[in-house]
Simulated scan of single mutants.
Amino acid sequence: MSEALLVIDYSYDFAAPEGKLTAGEPALEIESALVDKISEFHGTGRPVFFMMDIHHEGDEHHPETELFPPHNIAGTKGRELFGRVKEIYEEIESAPNVFFIDKTRYSAFAGTNLGQLLAERGIDSLTLTGLVTDICILHTAVDAYNKGYRITVPASCVGSFNRDGHIFALEHFKNSLGATVER
């Protein structure tokens, strides 16, 4: 089994208390566990993919425009990795097993070359981390399931601004996608 880590949307806008679409305290609570998970994967040479939401100022055609306030706008602080996750990324970003990929939809697979990069490396198992459990993590997990990947979601490494949605997603990962949810 070959495994990769996906760090999804741990950006300033999603994680900082003053972020444009912050998950608030749940985002801050996962920071240490997320940094530990990144260190673990990187330290063993397994691939780490930082998947980052990107939007463009004034893009009225993007489907999220009517659902959420502007966030993760290209060229702004809001789109930068946040806190200690940003620090560890800056330490390891030039390593051959570290990738940073822009994504324009909830799923890390939609419109990206993630699937190709995983296939080239023989990856068959994914550990999903980051924000937001019931949106981008959930949509990535469904796509991963449909593509045949084994899925692990460490509950200590995902968070949401919607507590009920977070709980639903963790149960959905386990009960509908056969994922391992680490408590």
Results as ranks from 00 to 15, higher is better:
1 M>D: 12
3 E>P: 06
3 E>K: 15
3 E>A: 14
6 L>M: 06
7 V>Q: 14
7 V>W: 12
10 Y>F: 15
10 Y>G: 13
11 S>Q: 14
11 S>K: 00
12 Y>P: 09
12 Y>T: 13
12 Y>C: 11
14 F>K: 09
16 A>I: 02
17 P>T: 05
20 K>L: 10
20 K>N: 13
22 T>E: 06
22 T>D: 03
24 G>W: 12
27 A>F: 05
30 I>M: 08
30 I>W: 11
32 S>L: 06
34 L>G: 02
35 V>T: 04
37 K>W: 06
38 I>A: 07
40 E>S: 15
41 F>L: 01
42 H>G: 02
43 G>T: 00
43 G>Q: 02
44 T>K: 11
45 G>C: 03
45 G>M: 00
46 R>A: 15
47 P>Y: 01
51 M>W: 00
53 D>W: 01
54 I>S: 12
54 I>Q: 15
57 E>H: 12
57 E>F: 06
59 D>L: 07
60 E>P: 01
60 E>N: 07
61 H>N: 15
63 P>V: 08
64 E>P: 01
65 T>S: 14
65 T>F: 09
66 E>D: 11
67 L>S: 07
68 F>V: 06
69 P>V: 08
72 N>A: 12
73 I>D: 09
73 I>E: 07
73 I>W: 08
74 A>L: 07
75 G>T: 00
76 T>C: 09
76 T>F: 09
79 R>H: 07
81 L>Q: 09
83 G>E: 03
84 R>N: 13
86 K>P: 01
87 E>M: 06
87 E>H: 06
87 E>I: 04
87 E>T: 13
88 I>M: 12
88 I>W: 14
88 I>L: 14
90 E>T: 01
93 E>W: 10
93 E>P: 02
93 E>Q: 15
94 S>W: 09
94 S>P: 00
98 V>A: 05
100 F>I: 11
100 F>Q: 03
102 D>M: 13
103 K>P: 13
104 T>F: 15
105 R>W: 13
106 Y>E: 03
106 Y>K: 13
107 S>C: 07
110 A>F: 14
111 G>I: 10
111 G>V: 01
111 G>F: 02
112 T>F: 09
112 T>K: 09
113 N>V: 13
113 N>G: 07
114 L>R: 12
116 Q>G: 07
117 L>N: 09
118 L>W: 13
118 L>N: 14
119 A>C: 09
122 G>D: 07
122 G>W: 06
124 D>H: 08
124 D>I: 12
126 L>W: 11
128 L>W: 02
130 G>W: 03
131 L>G: 02
133 T>W: 12
134 D>S: 14
135 I>L: 14
136 C>R: 07
136 C>E: 02
137 I>L: 07
138 L>D: 07
141 A>D: 02
141 A>F: 03
141 A>S: 08
142 V>T: 08
142 V>F: 01
143 D>G: 00
144 A>W: 00
145 Y>Q: 03
145 Y>L: 04
148 G>C: 13
149 Y>F: 15
149 Y>L: 01
150 R>G: 05
150 R>L: 10
150 R>V: 04
152 T>S: 11
155 A>M: 05
161 F>H: 08
161 F>K: 10
162 N>W: 14
162 N>R: 10
164 D>R: 13
169 A>W: 08
169 A>L: 08
170 L>K: 05
171 E>F: 09
174 K>Q: 10
175 N>L: 12
175 N>M: 11
175 N>P: 00
177 L>N: 08
177 L>W: 10
178 G>F: 10
178 G>E: 00
179 A>H: 05
182 E>A: 06
183 R>P: 11
